[in-house]
Write a protein that binds this DNA or RNA. Sequence first.
DNA 1: ACCTGAACACCGTTCAAGT
DNA 2: ACCTGAACACCGTTCAAGT
Lengths: 223, 223
Amino acid sequence: MDKKPQTTRRDTSLSRERIIDAAIAILDAEGESALTFRTLAQRLSTGAGAIYWHVADKQDLLAAACDAVTAQTLAACAPGAAPEADIRAIASGVFDMMEAHPWAGAALIRAGGQGPLVRILESLGRQVQALGVPDNEQWATVSALLNYILGVAGQNAANMQIARSGGIERAGLLESVAAAWSGLDAARYPFVRSMAGSLRAHDDRADFLAGIDLILRGIRSRA
Amino acid sequence: MDKKPQTTRRDTSLSRERIIDAAIAILDAEGESALTFRTLAQRLSTGAGAIYWHVADKQDLLAAACDAVTAQTLAACAPGAAPEADIRAIASGVFDMMEAHPWAGAALIRAGGQGPLVRILESLGRQVQALGVPDNEQWATVSALLNYILGVAGQNAANMQIARSGGIERAGLLESVAAAWSGLDAARYPFVRSMAGSLRAHDDRADFLAGIDLILRGIRSRA
DNA sequence: ACCTGAACACCGTTCAAGT
DNA sequence: ACCTGAACACCGTTCAAGT
């Protein structure tokens, strides 16, 4: 039998999957701005141009990376008994995904009506059907849920990027926004000023799920 | 009295406002990718570096441009009689803003908890208060509305950019997504497949407002 | 078929030098 | 105080040339 060589060496050749995995590793560790065809090629011990054989362009790479983490996330949310609980579980899973992969929120939005979005749409849609929403209201219902989730995803991604580029923690960013809100003109921004305290004390995840529940209540009480 | 010179010439010096106006003009006419410090400087008959005297960096420029169109939009949504109608009017105004300035959706999200977002938050917040939502639920309620609007904004911006880069019209993009959905595996994506027709026939604006109404119903029926 | 890596056509941003 | 514009340090992408 042939012996494997002692020195670790790349016995797998370059493939789309290996490229996407390496991209995810870079994105998770150093953020979206660190993902470069040059650094990616270096990490894979290859030339920058080689990547283009397996991947159309940077947008394709980002969409594929996002699709991979989304598929993994949704696979972990196996449908249970009650549709409402399942919707909460899916939303919750997507929220956790965005915390683990802060770049995924932005990628999710930019991917358009393809790939990762279709997966989420399918998962949510089945539960909306199970909820008994009539055919002609299903689209509006699902897209309300989806757009809410995407909005949170986008905000999360933006905050993460601001925090990273400023070298601040998430908590520090929240505090600085709360401070900015407290300092607003009392005559022009009474409401936002009054919300500074809530912002300081709030729990991202709890607020996110509260929004999902609000929408679920709206679905439940349809005419 | 002194006569104005016949030849049109720049009598106003470079200012932050003039820069932002020029940026908005470029963004509206040619999209986000066309906004470059070089083209902007050329349009203003100045050097590329001069802009940095009035603007911190590109993100600041984009945020300021977004803030300008947002302020204009919200000023046009004067509060009327019923809070629910006002919330619909604000949402509607933001939707129209995104149609007129497709880049504003992405900028809105990236701006974080500052500038334009604060304006929208304030407008929505007052109406939520007027709706009689108790203090400890106001934040969750407003952020549900805001995140939904931001989600639509992000999707819209992404679609516009895909359409522009592909040289397709909005209708053509919709059609191609619908076709892609129809072609999905029937076993794995039954729901999305069944929605292809709804997508083809749908009205962006009506669907958006249907989502707002869904959330309003949820607010109305809180425990 | 797949990989290499130099080269191209850009970017945002800086900064000495001017007025 | 404000403006100039060349220069710097990057990008994504292409493509002749290799295996």
